[in-house]
């Protein structure tokens, strides 16, 4: 794709969310992106797109950007490209999977990376458990769709067990710092070189299912 303002290839795809007429998509080359980003923001509203584009260092190579765009969440399948175009994430696990890519953005928007507010009274399920439940639910829907009711009911039982375990864990861990521990696990997952699956899955999903992590670079959607 060419830059909107010249013949050079467009390496920056910026969605301006604060335009009064609705989101505006811009495809720009590095030079024009630099020009656009140095302008004053037209409104004081925090814009994901502009913060994101500022974060993606202008010195970053086309290949590096392309690789980041193809990175996909193993749980919901959203690519980084789709996120930065829409400004919306696909599932809670994205915060773990795209952690190192999102942190500069969060820092840009909020000037902070740490929550200092309210915490749930019950300890929340870990990032991995949250991801597991989303995946299982997806697999159950797929099983129902292909009329494999036996598999669907197996998954339903697994979901129930997960739910029961979660409640049990909340009782045990309420008020303690135990809920913080899984974050280390999550970090580890996000640091691996290819899109990693959350650990501790009840059963390895079959390879043909769409909930499997897309393998970069060939299967990346929208790229």
């Amino acid at each position: 794709m060419k830059c909107q303002h010249c013949e050079k290839p467009a390496t920056f795809h910026i969605t301006e969310l604060t335009d009064p007429d609705g989101p505006k998509v811009m495809h720009l080359c590095e030079e024009h992106a630099r020009g656009f980003l140095s302008q004053e923001s037209p409104t004081p509203v925090a814009s994901v797109a502009s913060a994101l584009a500022k974060q993606l260092k202008l010195g970053q190579t086309k290949e590096e950007l392309a690789e980041l765009d193809r990175k996909a969440c193993p749980v919901c399948g959203i690519t980084f490209y789709e996120f930065r175009n829409a400004g919306r994430l696909g599932c809670p696990y994205d915060y773990t999977h795209f952690q190192k890519d999102l942190e500069p953005l969060l820092s840009n928007i909020h000037d902070s990376l740490e929550h200092h507010g309210k915490r749930p009274q019950r300890s929340a399920p870990t990032a991995d458990l949250q991801a597991q439940a989303i995946q299982l639910r997806r697999e159950m829907d797929e099983a129902v769709e292909r009329e494999d009711y036996e598999r669907a009911s197996e998954i339903r039982d697994q979901l129930r067990a997960l739910e029961a375990g979660k409640d049990e864990a909340s009782k045990d861990e309420a008020g303690s710092d135990a809920a913080d521990q899984p974050s280390a696990q999550s970090k580890k997952a996000s640091k691996s070189s290819s899109p990693s699956k959350p650990s501790k899955r009840p059963k390895p999903p079959k390879s043909s299912k769409p909930s499997d992590p897309p393998e970069p670079p060939s299967q990346a959607e929208d790229a």
Binding site: Y95, I109, G117, A127
Partner: peptide, 27 residues
Amino acid sequence: DLIEGAITYAYHPKYGYLTACPTNVGT
């Protein structure tokens, strides 16, 4: 608090309440 007693929210120990748009995450 009342709703949280009935529903488990998406929450991350470091980032707080997880939201679809990163501009709302945390609180």
